[in-house]
Amino acid sequence: MSPRYVSGKVLGSLGTLAFVIVFNFFLFRVVEGNPVATLFRGRNLTDAQRAAMRHQFGLDGSKLDQFWHYLVQLAHLNLGRSYETNATVLSEIGAAAWPTIWLVGISTLLSTVIGVAIGIVAAWRRGSVRDHALTSFTMTTYAMPDFWLGMLLLIVFSVLLGWFPIGGISDPTSNTTGIALLADQAYHMVLPCLTLTVAYLGEYAIVMRSSLLDTMREDYLTLARAKGLRDVLVRRRHAVPNALLPVVTLIAINFGFVLSGAIAVESIFSWPGLGHATYAAIRAPDLPMLQGLFLVFSASVIFFNLLADLAYAYLDPRVRTS
């Protein structure tokens, strides 16, 4: 991979990020009515108090002043304070990030591995009973909205059967620590993780299947068979690695979206992650918090896109060596 290729991709990503930062500012200034009034609705405030509040939230001065203020604060990683909790947005997001990273990380890992495996098995015996069964299954899960699946699982396994907790990340009435706490959190994670895994594996299975079917038409597979290779080796050494190339890109890109895409599932299971925080911030409405979350989500999409580009270039010698 040439340094020029890498620096080009990195610069492109930084450009996109800069655009998002500017856009983010204007979007939220246009949306925003009068947060001070919203926040203290029904209460009497003196004009002096109002002015003080406006100053505290960085809402005084001209729009240009505000924009400058916003950029300076952003450069210091100061995203403002939550209207709701008055804690810094950064600390709020930092606290909510870990549950999301665990939940999304594990479910993405599971859905990609299972989805890709299903795609391979289905494509290799195209048209077989197994292919039809697997493809019907993945089509069904692909078509199922994640919140609907989440509610279904919640009703069946938590409400009716009582096998799993209704929501949250740990049992609020116990004060265990260490391994016991981890085990409790894992137990709480089962249903949301299952929901995300099942909701997303269909896409990977479908993409992997069609990518492998395309690859299976390639002449170099005939050559590999002609050389005397066993079927499994033709598949493992030649077909699957080539078919995986576009899927790797999809996985990386999706990962960026999944961070923000878990809003519905986290809300259903009261999982205290970024998605849940977004839901709460919209309901309030807590604009600094939303602005911060929006920035984090955009940055993660941009970052994983960059990662996808670089991974593809690394894995495909046609890009790497040119």
Binding site: L223, A226, L229, L315
Partner: peptide
């Protein structure tokens, strides 16, 4: 029997080699 008795130089040299494997490796594999 394949390749030890009978080997084929396939039509279309552009697509017959695996594009993501080194050519030496592809010969070694045989």
């Amino acid at each position: 029997v394949r390749w030890t008795e009978l080997a084929v130089v396939f039509q279309g040299a552009l697509h017959t080699l695996n594009p993501v494997k080194r050519v030496g490796w592809q010969i070694e594999e045989a």
